[in-house]
């Protein structure tokens, strides 16, 4: 693949990848701190979950857009799996976390938030950007 085309498709998701990673790590820090302080999931974690979800939607959207633009992922199925997981994980963790209104609910949200940066990395690898 040409360096120029790889560059143009890489730039937009690169910003979003970094942003998603940062907000996810922030949410993980907040949630795990809450767990350490024996606190159940609260509004701050809800806002964090929403922000991470929005970032995930934008990132997956950008990836799909560059796919439509002709830069297809190396492994389509794998990419779809990671993308779907990243879209569902924060909200799913919030739902399960609210079922557990103790510090362990915060642990669930924190653990899920730690997995998001891994998914971002893997999506980047699958896309080969």
């Amino acid at each position: 693949m040409g360096a120029a085309s790889a560059d143009t498709v890489a730039r937009m998701p690169a910003v979003l990848s970094t942003a998603t990673t940062v907000v996810a790590l922030l949410l993980a820090a907040v949630a795990l701190l809450a767990a350490a302080l024996n606190r159940a999931p609260d509004r701050v974690q809800l806002i964090g979950t929403v922000v991470v979800s929005i970032a995930a939607v934008l990132l997956v959207g950008a990836a799909v857009a560059s796919w439509i633009g002709g830069h297809s992922p190396r492994e389509t199925t794998t990419f779809l799996g990671y993308a779907l997981t990243m879209l569902l994980l924060p909200a799913g963790a919030w739902i399960v976390g609210r079922m557990e209104p103790t510090r362990f609910g915060s642990v669930i949200i924190g653990v899920a938030a730690l997995i998001v940066p891994v998914l971002v990395l893997r999506i980047g690898q699958v896309f080969g950007a």
Binding site: V96, E100, T102, F104, I108, V111
Partner: peptide, 13 residues
């Protein structure tokens, strides 16, 4: 429940 629910979540993933 409790830590068990964390295990359920991570195992489910």
């Amino acid at each position: 429940t409790g830590l068990g629910r964390v295990l359920v979540f991570v195992y489910g993933l």
